[in-house]
């Protein structure tokens, strides 16, 4: 079972590298494409950790829907514009805080008891998973569907409000 460990390390390196490249790109399209790569690697990691349904949903929702929405917005709003250069100075304080947090987490995790246990591979079938959700968590599923409906209505309202808002400011001026 040494091969699963190798796959895990390779996936970790791919995820961390792609995410680090994504957050430092000046071109937003490149950043989103690196992030899609990171999400694909995360989907494979989910499959490795025994969640095939979540791996499929990661590809469909994160890499498929959300990132394509980001690409649409970038291409409609600021395609071709050169982004204002972000100087190195604004990376200093978040970088320091991030390094300190990582060091704290590192020491905390390796000091804490019970974290050295190895995780054995297991797999849950999507049928079992779906039955578990809809038998034990049916009320949160309904609440989440209501949340999605509210988000849809809010996005529609924000998109419509523009014309009314502009007319209002013109009248005031």
């Amino acid at each position: 079972m040494i091969s699963l460990r190798i796959i895990f390390y390779v996936l970790s390196v791919v995820i961390l590298t792609a995410t680090a490249m994504a957050i430092t790109r000046k071109n937003l399209v490149h950043a989103v494409l690196y992030l899609i790569q990171s999400f694909f690697a995360t989907a494979i990691l989910f499959y490795l950790l025994g969640a095939p349904l979540l791996a499929a949903l990661e590809v469909i929702i994160y890499a498929g829907a959300i990132m394509v929405l980001f690409l649409f917005i970038i291409m409609t709003l600021i395609a071709g514009e050169t982004q204002a250069g972000h100087g190195r100075r604004q990376w200093i304080f978040p970088g320091i805080l991030g390094v300190v947090s990582i060091l704290a987490a590192f020491f905390l995790i390796f000091e804490a008891p019970g974290t050295q246990t190895m995780v054995a591979p297991a797999m849950v079938r999507p049928l079992v998973f779906g039955e578990y959700i809809f038998s034990k968590y049916w009320l949160p599923v309904e609440i989440v569907s209501l949340l999605l409906f509210v988000a849809l209505a809010g996005a529609l309202y924000l998109g419509r409000y523009k014309s009314g808002g502009q007319v209002e400011t013109e009248v005031e001026q």
């Binding site: 995410t19 957050i23 490795l48 805080l97 987490a105 995790i109 390796f110 995780v119 591979p121």
Partner: peptide
Amino acid sequence: MIASYNELILLSIFVFILGAVC
């Protein structure tokens, strides 16, 4: 065996802090 539990949590913390810094 895939990995030890602290390696998985460390990967999660690294990615989380990358997002926070971003």
